[in-house]
Amino acid sequence: MTGIEAARLGRTFAGGAGVHDIDMRVDAGSLHALIGLNGAGKSTLMRLLLGMLAPQRGSVRIAGHDPRRAEAELGPLVGHLIEYPLAYGELTARANLELGARLHGVPAAEVRTTVARVLDELDLERFSDVRARRLSLGNRQRLGLASALQHDPRVIVLDEPSNALDPAGVVLLREALVRRARDGAAVLVSSHHLDEVARIADVITVINGGRIIGSLEPRQSELEHAFFELVHADDRARAEVAA
């Protein structure tokens, strides 16, 4: 089953920014990294994939559904973290996770064990009774990741998931994503650099100026060098076209 499928996808904002002609596929059981510099279009693409923006061109399917038309079907199937977590400052970490579990379709009888499991998995147990607004930035990020992952969705979309995480948090995140991909989830993560998570991906797609410009072989040497080669070559080609 295909987790995410985008065909000729495009959305242009006033001024020309946006994403254009995106063809992309994230298969079940694979961990796919989307790498691009700041402003390359990663977040816009993820918002299109999740239905937060309507495409002007092309189509998107996520977990088999059109995200702009799907109502409640996506709840159990998708987990995401785009910029802000599903975390209300006045609620404790545990209460936020319980709320998130219910909103993702976890049956009431299973909420407690679901939350306990993810608190343990992301080492959040000691903060479980702390209000979200009092958590450090890193622990709020862990809370957001926990909310996105706790219901074991079939499709996972995370925008810069290692932001603000300490090294221990990055390791926990990496293990959580590998485990879920191994269990059949389609995982898409974005990053502005080749971080610890991007390096363990099965596929690395490079985006620049709102277009997909190529891919990298995750196990190749000089990965960073190859990334900048691709980006600079694309920038030079654009400059020549503009001239």
Binding site: G75, E83, Y84
Partner: peptide, 14 residues
Amino acid sequence: ADGTVVALYGLSVG
């Protein structure tokens, strides 16, 4: 204001 509207997509509640 809190940015939580982003998290209200892809849920079991519309």
